[in-house]
């Protein structure tokens, strides 16, 4: 078979098919991104034209903005705790529901249900009521005779944990991806290791886990980005304030309040640039480290 050269007709058709995406990519992704890179070095309030200020935004951000650092701390804490817990839980449930027993389909739907309404305002509102001072959680504590007077959302030690719990509860999408991954592991691997006398625990660590590492890599990257840009939950639960003491003032929340409440578009853009660099850095690190822990089938 000879190598196919691009025919002119086919090239034109190809570009016609991807044209909608191409327009969107240039107009909604690339040009705005470049504009952000510029605006980050300006002072811009939407009323007068942007005024170039060099590194002023970044210097102020890093040296003179306590709330900025609080938001960095809150976001990293949130992402580093919630992402691993969520993934481990998702894997645990996927293992539990990966079988041909009766009712498995129903169970999968049951466990996925909270995630379909995942980031909705309604669920965040519900969460705020559950952890309110007279909310459901304290009512249950009182029922089992535990101290029930903690103000969960008002205490800097606990507020962020309510949000972590909320996102861990919505482990559905990584669970589905794990389930799809489990389905792809050839069953003869398990059969031959059973003959060799390996028990379920050994099989999990020797077969299941290594075979799932490519899926794990994908989930980790996507969940990390979701974690870094978490917004709605904290916005609703804390009424857009990131209270108490900025312990839940996530990066995206603080960026929003700077850019769209105070109309400091330059400062907001500078924050977005740092966010992009942070995401690129962490994704890069994860990919860089992947040869050490991701198992690829040699074909």
């Amino acid at each position: 078979m000879k190598i196919k050269k691009h025919s002119t007709r086919e090239s034109i058709d190809g570009y016609l098919f991807i044209l909608p995406w191409l327009i969107g990519f240039l107009g909604l992704n690339l040009i705005p991104m470049v504009a952000t890179l510029y605006l980050g070095f300006t002072d811009f309030d939407m009323l007068s034209s942007p005024e170039f200020t060099g590194l002023a935004n970044f210097i102020r951000m890093f040296t003179d903005d306590v709330r900025y650092w609080a938001s960095v701390k809150a976001t990293l804490y949130f992402a580093f705790v919630s992402v691993p817990v969520r993934l481990v839980f998702a894997l645990f449930v996927a293992m539990m529901l990966h079988n041909n027993r009766r009712g498995t389909h129903f169970y999968r739907a049951l466990y996925y249900a909270p995630s379909v309404v995942g980031s909705s305002v309604a669920v965040a509102v519900m969460w705020r009521e559950i952890f309110g001072p007279n909310g459901l959680f304290n009512a249950i504590l009182a029922k089992v005779h535990l101290p029930a007077d903690t103000v969960w959302l008002g205490d800097p030690r606990f507020a962020i944990w309510t949000l972590i719990l909320l996102v861990v509860w919505q482990f559905g999408s990584p669970m589905l991806i794990f389930l799809a991954g489990l389905k792809q592991i050839p069953t003869d691997l398990y059969e031959s290791s059973s003959i060799d006398g390996a028990g379920p625990v050994r099989q999990f660590f020797k077969i299941t886990l290594p075979m799932l590492t490519p899926i794990f890599l994908f989930n980790l990257v996507m969940q990390m980005i979701t974690g870094f840009t978490a917004f709605t939950q904290s916005f609703i639960v804390t009424n857009g304030k990131g209270t108490p003491l900025d312990t839940t003032n996530f990066y995206a929340l603080y960026l929003y309040s700077r850019a769209f409440e105070s109309f400091q578009m330059g400062y907001g853009s500078a924050m977005a640039i740092v966010l992009l660099i942070a995401v690129a850095l962490f994704t890069g690190l994860i990919f860089k480290s992947s040869p050490m822990w991701v198992h690829y089938e040699s074909e």
Partner: peptide, 29 residues
């Protein structure tokens, strides 16, 4: 379809999956 720079555009598309929305939010607004 086969067309010039397809791989490049496809890679760009996958990259947008990982772009935080915040990087384009302000100029879009």
């Amino acid at each position: 379809l086969h067309f010039p720079m397809k791989k490049f555009w496809f890679a760009c598309m996958l990259a947008t999956l990982m772009l935080p929305l915040q990087i384009q939010l302000i100029p879009q607004y």
